[in-house]
Amino acid sequence: MSSSLVKMVLFCLRPVRRYALMIKDDEDDSDDHDDSLLWSRELERHSLGDFSMAVVQANEVIEDHSEVETGKGAVFVGVYDGHGGPEASRYISDHLFAHLIRNSRERGVITEETLRGAFSATERGFLTLVRRTRGLKPLIAAAGSCCLVGVIRKGTLLIANLGDSRAVLGSMNRSNKIVAEQLTSDHNAAQEEVRQELRSLHPDDPRIVVHKQGLQRPVLSAEPCVYTRVLQTSDKFVIFASDGLWEHVSNQQAVEIVHKHPRPGIARMLVRRAMNIAAKKKGMMYDDLKKVERGVRRFFHDDITVAVIFIDNELLMVEKATVPELSIKGFSHTVGPSKFSLFFS
């Protein structure tokens, strides 16, 4: 495959409707039940605590895909921020976790190596799909996706990131204040060191970094940045979100919102906060923005995906499953058995 095609496939830009349930908070008490582009799972259980998910669509076809997989003493979360169409992000959602379970089952443990292997296998599979279908669907060669995943098992948090989605940890400091710790680096061409790496990797392509209405955001490769952390009793939750949230809400603002409010509906509250800020930037009210149709709404904000994974420390070392092993896909009605059962069988 030519380098230009690989670049298009891996290019990462910022570039099924379901009615959401409603929650009130003391800073924004607007109803959002009439926003058909906003989806949420208010609060679900995983064997290490609770989790909350929310997605709001802005593009004509939603390009964010996401999932939470619950297993015996473990939880997996994936946020896949697509561009140029949903093909790449949807493919990742359908295949990456299965590759991870297959690789990890052979070794009996989920590791940085098996997670990297899952990324590589998913990339190879998608490139094969591109080669096979680009004659009939040439635009698939321009589709790509950022990819952020996390696994918590046996008191350890394992994160892999490719692109500019972000994982932020909320922890209590010695003064009993909630503080934010960004666990991932934003992997995009807005950073000078990333631009230099792009140019060094593609010396024959003078347009690998292009200025057009601001910097575009190409991903360097499908090799993720991987991070491992042994969780402490001070670690309370992790926010996984596409860059649509972080464009409008800072790390510290996000963890304070999660810490301040009840758990049910907290992911949707973060999405709404980003939408409120986006509306104000354009001189609009939130109630007006939520009436804007998909496609047109992209002028105000991106697709936004948020998953908040709470960590209940007393459950971290418990191996016995306390909840069903489920797979929940963001912004769809898809809820079914998780492939985690294959790993633990």
Rank of each mutant, 00 (worst) to 15 (best):
Ser120His: 10
Val209Met: 01
Leu326His: 06
Ala118Trp: 00
Val219Tyr: 04
Ile309Met: 03
Pro15Phe: 13
Val77Leu: 09
Ala180Thr: 11
Val79Pro: 01
Glu123Leu: 14
Lys291Ser: 08
His248Gly: 00
Ile311Tyr: 07
His46Phe: 05
Met172Trp: 13
Met53Glu: 04
Ser332Pro: 05
Ala241Leu: 04
Lys154Arg: 11
Leu326Trp: 00
Ile239Arg: 05
Ala20Met: 07
Leu342Asn: 08
Val323Ser: 10
Tyr286Trp: 00
Gly163Phe: 11
Met172Asn: 10
Phe237Ile: 02
Ser185Pro: 00
Gln216Tyr: 05
Val149Lys: 00
Glu325Met: 15
Ser4Leu: 13
Cys147Leu: 10
Pro264Met: 07
Arg134Asn: 06
Thr70Lys: 04
Gly214Phe: 10
Lys137Met: 06
Ser332Ala: 04
Gly85Lys: 00
Leu316Met: 10
Ser30Arg: 13
Asp235Tyr: 04
Lys291Ala: 13
Asp243His: 13
Ser338Glu: 02
His83Tyr: 10
Met317Gly: 14
Val55Glu: 10
Ser89His: 02
Asp50Ala: 12
Glu192Pro: 07
Val75Thr: 07
Val194Met: 11
Leu162Thr: 10
Arg298Phe: 00
Ser120Met: 02
Asp26Ile: 12
Phe299Val: 02
Thr114Ile: 04
His248Leu: 06
Ala241Glu: 02
Leu37Gln: 05
Glu314Ser: 15
Gly135Cys: 08
Phe331Asp: 15
Cys146Leu: 10
Asp64Pro: 10
Asp34Trp: 09
Lys290Phe: 09
Leu129Glu: 11
Val55Gly: 05
Leu342Glu: 14
Glu223Pro: 00
Pro224Lys: 08
Ser40Ile: 03
Pro337Ala: 14
Asp302Gln: 12
Leu139Phe: 06
Lys24Thr: 05
Asn188Arg: 01
Ile309Leu: 11
Ser185Thr: 14
Arg131His: 07
Ala98Val: 15
Ser66Asn: 11
His202Thr: 12
Arg134Trp: 06
Ile110Cys: 08
Met269His: 09
Val318Ile: 12
Ser221Asn: 11
Leu129Cys: 03
His248Cys: 06
Ile159Pro: 07
Gln196Asn: 14
Phe119Arg: 08
Leu115Ser: 06
Ala88Asp: 03
Gln57Ile: 12
Phe126Glu: 13
Val77Asn: 09
Arg166Leu: 13
Ser242Leu: 03
Val318Gly: 02
Ala190Phe: 08
Ser165Tyr: 01
Leu315His: 08
Ala279Met: 02
Leu37Met: 05
Arg217Cys: 02
Gly155His: 07
Asp204Gly: 14
Val16Tyr: 01
Gln253Glu: 15
Arg107Ile: 12
Gln182Gly: 08
Leu38Ile: 11
Asp303Arg: 09
Ile92Asp: 01
Asp312Glu: 15
Glu256Val: 13
Ser332Leu: 00
Gln182Pro: 10
Gly49Met: 01
Arg174Trp: 03
Ala267Glu: 09
His333Phe: 03
Leu162Gln: 14
Ala54Ile: 02
Glu63Lys: 01
Val258Glu: 08
Val209Lys: 02
